[in-house]
Every structure is written in C-alpha cells, then in structure tokens.
Write a protein that binds this DNA or RNA. Structure first.
Lengths: 104, 104
DNA sequence: CGGAATCCGGGAGGATACTG
DNA sequence: CAGTATCCTCCCGGATTCCG
C-alpha cells in the first residue's frame, strides 16, 4: 500500500477521528455514563480550556460519533451521548486498552 | 474516569504509540510484506523526508512494535519487521479499518 | 452554564544538504 | 543506501476574556 491508497482508507479515517488530545478521554466518559453534561465532562478534565473541549466535541459531533442535546434553560444545559456508530467503537477501544496494558 | 486515571491507561498508551503521521502506513506495509527495506518503505511514501521516516521508525522501535536489522554492506541494507507485540495489533487495526469504512 | 473571540508558544513535520 | 544535521513553517492546543 502506498500513500495514495492510504489517503482514503478506513484506518486512516478512524485514526484521524480519534486523534485529538482529549477525544479518547471524552469517549471513555461517554462509555461509562452514556449521557454527560458539558460541565461534568469539563470537571473530569480540568486542565483543558473550555474552548478546546468544545472544539473536540464539535469534531466528534461532525464525525457522527456523538450527539449534542440542548435544553433551553437559563443556565443552559447541554448533554452529549454516543451515536450508534460511536458505540460500535467500544469493543475496539477496549481491545486497544488491553493491548496498551500488555494484556493482549 | 478523570484525567489522572486516564494518563496511565492502556488506551492512551496505545494511541500515543499509533499517533504519528506516517506510522499507520508504515505498519500497513509491514503487515503486507513482513520484512521491508528502508528504501522500499520510502518509495511507498515519497512525500516524507527521510528524516521524518527515520524518526517514526525509531519511535516504533523504541515502543517495541518493530525490529531493525542491519546488514553490514556497502551500500548498507536495513530491514524492518514487526515484533510479536506489533503483530498483535493486526486484528485491531483491521477492525478500525472496517469501522472507518462504515462496514462495522 | 456553555460556549465564541483573540492571542500566543512549542513541537511535529517538512526542505535541503551532507556523510559513512 | 540509510541515515544525520540544520533550518524553517504551520497549526494544535493552551490562557484569557467576554457574552446570552
């Protein structure tokens, strides 16, 4: 396989989607709780600026991995959850986790 | 899961190992041919400078994913192949590939 | 609370030249 | 052939401030 073939292959797309300093941690939280509020997410990763967190969420949303739901209140409430497609990542990330721990 | 727990988890380690613009393509080549010479690798990705290619290879070697073998000739010959650990990545990357193509 | 707007620094990656 | 050695560019992520 050369670069031209690689450009449009699924592996590259997947890794592009996952690449982003905070995306794996975001997904991890969504696998655990299945519906998480912006501020809860932010509390679990207090070293991110809210700008960056919002960016990563937007990208995941655009890639159809997560869904955003807004409750029109004041103060506003915004929830994020995995899409069906996002949930299918679960087993794969779990294997990567095991592999990274030397268990596989 | 918060950031402190995430820092040392297997998922993060795995994605760190895979992150690098050319690493997935390098691995793809090694899965296909099982023993590849530096220059062959380089021909398959002519847009990389040799410096960068060497860097990525060094990192994969340090992470024990690939092995370097040098034949002391002139001109020199250097071969790269997957380690046992590296080969275990195969099925996982294959699933990521399918997922990225919307097949899973 | 959940962002958007602005500014900024560091580091990954690229271009080129050289060497054993 | 298989790399180093320099130099440079670009952009991701961080810090801060402001808004509905």
């Amino acid at each position: 396989m050369n670069f031209e073939e690689f450009k449009n292959c699924g592996l590259r797309r997947s890794l592009n989607i996952l690449s982003g300093k905070w995306k794996p941690l975001i997904l991890q939280n969504l696998f655990e709780e299945d519906r998480v509020r912006f501020v809860e997410l932010w509390r679990n990763m207090p070293r991110v600026s809210k700008k960056v967190l919002a960016e990563q969420l937007k990208q995941l949303e655009k890639d159809l991995i997560i869904e955003r739901t807004e409750v029109h209140n004041f103060p506003p409430e915004v929830y994020y959850k995995l899409t069906e497609r996002g949930q299918k990542l679960g087993p794969i990330l779990s294997e990567l986790h095991s592999w990274g721990n030397g268990l596989a």
